[in-house]
Amino acid sequence: MTIKEIGGEFEMLSRLTRQYPQAPGLVKGIGDDCAVLDYNEEQYLLVTTDMMVENDHFSMKWQSPQQIGKKLVESNVSDIVCKGGNPGFAFLSMCLPKSVTYEFMEDFYAGVYHAAERHNVILAGGDTTHGDIFVFNLALTGLVKKDSLKLRSGARIGDAICVTGELGGSTAGLKLLLHGKNGFLNDYLEPLCRTADEGATIAKYATATIDVSDGLGSEVTHICEQSRVSAVIDYAAIPLSPATISSGSLLGLDPHDFALYGGEDYEIVFTITEKSIPELKKEFDDFRVVGKILDPAEGIHIFRDGKKFPVKKGYDHFSL
């Protein structure tokens, strides 16, 4: 039986990790953006890891080594900051083809160091081996104050669902490249995640958080599953940039689908009580309300033109 046949990567992980052991000091294990470990009286230790595989997460046809290095760091930092944490030490593991040049790796590391400097990340170690294609994996630690940690499991009925920035730009750029079209590509080639200060400010007021790796629909579903609630997403409220809207028009596709089911925007989706929204806006206002948390019996759906539509699955590595 293939992974696709059992329901995809998330169903596979759910089955394989159902019986993973609990351990003293493990506050939150599998199922959130980071593992959360007890660290000291005031802080938790956050640990995350993300892998990028050639011809899946990046392509030499349109990305430079420096852009690949930047994206690797940004994707990991996003997991830390969306929990309200500060990123710390990084560990880089690489699978390199034997034909790789020193100049390529020099440029790649320049991208890693550029993004690391932006987020005060220190590269502290890693591993290297050889293979047929490039594979890069970054493991990243971080620290978060215990009273600032926000997991996916804190959403409550009546909370507003919000998202920072604009969505869909990364998928729009990728689709333009795949179709040989000209347009705005930077959100795909050089995505930037939120900073630790922004994440910490959101965490002061949010009830649950998650970063946008797999699309708004997928991230809201993850929050609902962990919080044991349901949700409605307002189709008309999904924030799209003019460039993303233009890309959709050029491609003959709905740009809202880029936001809902694309991913790699590295924005933050969060839930918040209605009364806390004005307080958050005094400190950070680059977000929009895009939905509401509902009773579990309501189901997870999108509200568009007066009708309800079920939320489809977001990006899944084994769905193609």
Rank of each mutant, 00 (worst) to 15 (best):
I157V: 05
A203Q: 01
D147R: 05
G85K: 09
D38K: 02
F104V: 12
T201M: 08
V229H: 04
S148K: 04
A203V: 03
I202K: 06
T221P: 08
K4N: 14
D187A: 13
M60Y: 12
E117R: 10
N86F: 12
E74K: 01
D197G: 11
C193N: 04
V220Q: 02
K175V: 11
K292Q: 12
K71R: 07
E264N: 10
V36M: 01
A155L: 01
G85Q: 10
L185T: 07
E74Q: 09
I302F: 12
G165P: 09
Y235L: 07
P191E: 01
T244W: 02
L280H: 07
A237Q: 07
R156C: 01
D127Q: 11
L151K: 13
E283M: 13
D33V: 00
S246F: 06
H256P: 05
K281E: 14
N86H: 13
I302G: 07
T201H: 00
E274G: 03
R15F: 11
T209Y: 00
G25Q: 07
F303D: 04
G165Y: 11
L178F: 03
N40Q: 04
R288M: 12
Y235P: 11
E274D: 03
F58K: 07
T2R: 02
E54Q: 14
Y188W: 11
A115T: 09
N120C: 02
T171P: 01
I300F: 03
F309Y: 11
R152C: 06
V232L: 07
G173A: 11
N55G: 03
L216E: 02
K313D: 05
P242K: 09
S230G: 13
I68P: 12
V121R: 05
Y315L: 00
K98C: 03
D214Y: 05
F108G: 07
F104C: 11
D257S: 06
V100L: 07
E298Y: 15
W62H: 13
M51N: 06
A90G: 06
L250K: 06
R15W: 08
D132V: 08
T141N: 05
R288T: 15
K282F: 04
L250G: 01
H301D: 09
F284G: 09
V121E: 06
D132Q: 09
K313T: 04
S276A: 14
D211L: 00
T207Q: 09
G125L: 01
D197A: 15
L250N: 07
